[in-house]
Nucleic acid binder design. Structure first.
Ligand SMILES: [Mn+2]
Ligand SMILES: [Mn+2]
Ligand SMILES: [Zn+2]
Ligand SMILES: [Zn+2]
Lengths: 143, 143
DNA sequence: CCATAATTGATAATGAGTCTCAATAACAAG
DNA sequence: CTTGTTATTGAGACTCATTATCAATTATGG
């Protein structure tokens, strides 16, 4: 499925579907939620598979371009990705105390964004909304 | 005004209000819109003032902590800031073709975010919304 | 003015991500 | 299957933003 999509994408550009790219694609999708390149790389090594750090970075860029994964955000320690195939669009709440993440989707929110875009003559392609604050647990602990 | 705020913030923490910090504060506020540390640093040198790169980075962190400036986003080439004192909260549309930025504010959008937070038991403190797409000009050029 | 502790800045260090380039592998055509 | 062409790989060098070091300097309260 995802493989097909990736292969098509590669062919269209005269790129090749290599062992390394297969491994990186599969591992990327194997993460349930968010992941970073370094974890992915270690995951690969741990499993006895092989792909260099360079290939990991290169392939993640390709996977982003073809829409199979997305950059969620850039932290001080690098970029966070998540697979976007099968997972429908959502935004994030990030607890600034414990780092936990809540994924949410709000139809009204999306609709209003479209309206706002139209109002400014802007053609929106995609967006990122990150709400920072305190999760339920951390609110209690603060007291 | 902003100076007062900064001084208070520093005192509370046993930090000192130095010449360098004065300069960096003033220049930060002097930018009308978005800016990055390197530009700020050059701006300072150009004016004959003095403050090292290290101090620029250190002070920008302090200014963020006390809320006088905000990190807008991290690009491949570093962090973008903007002064948040006097400027009320807004979000951004970013043209992925020409890089131009539209600042906007939508009351309904904010309200719905609050609702969504409540629904998830999340205590929102702040947020960033970036809509990427094509500005008016670039839409025309695409055709 | 003095003592103390924070600050500065030159410079080294860190770390994510990219680039280089010789060796290797994918793949299309025969 | 064999071959030729060309993309890919990976080790390591490199870039560049940002932070850490640390000796010399300076702000600040008394
Ligand atoms: Mn997510
Ligand atoms: Mn802005
Ligand atoms: Zn939390
Ligand atoms: Zn544009």
């Amino acid at each position: 499925m995802e493989k097909k999509l990736f292969i098509t994408f590669l062919k269209e550009r005269g790129l090749r579907f290599t062992k390394e790219r297969t491994v990186i694609l599969q591992k990327s999708l194997s993460f349930n939620g968010h992941f970073d390149p370094e974890s992915l790389y270690h995951q690969i090594r741990k499993t006895g598979l092989k792909a260099s750090r360079a290939s990991v970075y290169r392939t993640l860029n390709l996977l982003c371009e073809c829409g199979l994964i997305e950059r969620v955000r850039k932290t001080d320690r690098g970029t966070i990705y998540e697979s976007s195939f099968g997972h429908k669009h959502h935004d994030h709440m990030l607890c600034i105390r414990c780092g936990s993440i809540i994924e949410f989707y709000s139809e009204p929110l999306e609709k209003i964004q479209e309206k706002v875009c139209k109002k400014h003559g802007f053609l929106g392609a995609n967006h990122t909304l990150e709400i920072r604050g305190y999760c339920k647990t951390c609110q209690k602990k603060k007291k």
